[in-house]
Write a protein that binds this DNA or RNA. Structure first.
Lengths: 216, 216
DNA sequence: GTTCTGAGATTGTGATCACATGGAGGTATG
DNA sequence: CATACCTCCATGTGATCACAATCTCAGAAC
């Protein structure tokens, strides 16, 4: 807690470390849907007692990253098709708005960074690395949305990503993707052209494409 | 977002009871912005130890209903004007969509229920009861949105309400409102007429009116 | 009057424990 | 062979405690 010497690291509190690490794993599809977790197990993984494990679990449940049965057992969520559709609609709503707000502030340096990330996505796809694919894909989006200067909106978008994390991984396995997302090129083109309607369409298409593959 | 409790059964779990009660108080403006809370104090209020109080507080922090300082102290949020604007924009985004989805399913019985709630809002306004005003106003909106069959989206809208709760109360004091929300009449009229564009506009106007008064 | 200091009180954190509940798996019974 | 039952282990819950960090505020120093 008092180790303020390290500049980049915030709090070193145990429950927060557990929370952040677990959150990242879930968001990036490191855990399959329906994966059961136990407080004692989490505690053992991170060398802490049940207390910090419980607090991390609580926060994750509150964010929808984990579900709790009536008896208190915790697991990653198994989403129904309706829920997946709804979350995709939420992504479309939120991310189109975020992209739109970021557009006036998206200069060339940002677009170039996004292009580099896009090549990393292609890498992950070629390696068939689902976790790396999800992580870099979200990084692509987050890089843009950070420019929107809308932290509450970005937090909501991340909450949606979090809820979809385990399912995204399962979906990736079914998609057998061989190429990077086609709509990323459209997003980058619209950004360069300052074309807002085009950007909105491209983002909406990108965030709902997985859904279309699921339904089709 | 909250646990799916069986309709008639009250959960006996302490931390959940604390969580729900505190959440309701915050959402409805029972606490002013910046109000500090302590775990031992919460525990005392609900006759429980620190443990359930901590868990409730964690969940509320995760939902944005409470903020945590770097030293772990918890308090209701004091929102900047930028943040208020952003949350209002989120309300507009989410609630316009929810209303739009509810429209095809909004039959006369629902509209009549909303009209009854609207008179309760007028009541609260006349009595100058801020908490009752906020609660009935949210009930008006929630009654409509429940018909949208979009639980994740509704949960997000509630999260926004939650974050604005304490500030809403403070705003209400400044507004010195004497009449019920004018746009509620437009919402009801659009519902009756099945007028989607009109409904979207009315909802958008309603959820951003407080903001306009703040800025103006 | 203002600022610094330091001691005491307050507060969050994490570990541990007793307890009740629920689930899994084996056994008996049809 | 299937199903009901029962026992034991695993798991979440809540209370309590020791501890460290932090806040508060009275009093001293300038």
């Amino acid at each position: 807690m008092t180790l303020t010497a390290r500049p980049t690291e915030a709090t070193t509190v145990a429950h927060d470390r557990v929370f952040r690490h677990l959150r990242s794993r879930i968001m990036h599809g490191d855990l399959p849907p329906g994966q059961a977790l136990t407080l004692r197990g989490i505690g053992k993984d991170y060398n802490v007692s049940m207390t910090p494990a419980r607090e991390a679990a609580r926060r994750l449940v509150a964010e929808g990253a984990l579900t709790m049965s009536s008896s208190g057992r915790i697991a990653t969520p198994e989403l129904s098709n309706d829920r997946i559709e709804e979350l995709a609609a939420l992504r479309a709503l939120l991310e189109v708005e975020l992209a739109s707000r970021a557009l006036p502030r998206a200069h060339m340096a940002l677009i170039e960074r996004m292009q580099i990330i896009n090549t990393a996505i292609a890498d992950a796809v070629q390696r068939g690395d689902a976790v790396a694919y999800i992580r870099t894909n979200l990084e692509f989006h987050r890089t843009l949305y950070l420019r929107a200067q809308a932290p509450a909106m970005l937090a909501m978008a991340e909450t949606v990503w979090l809820q979809m994390g385990p399912t995204m991984r399962a979906l990736y396995g079914r998609l057998r993707r061989t190429e990077p997302p086609q709509f990323h090129r459209l997003i980058l083109a619209a950004l360069k052209a300052g074309d807002e309607p085009g950007l909105r369409l491209a983002v909406r298409s990108d965030v709902t494409q997985g859904l279309r593959m699921l339904a089709g």
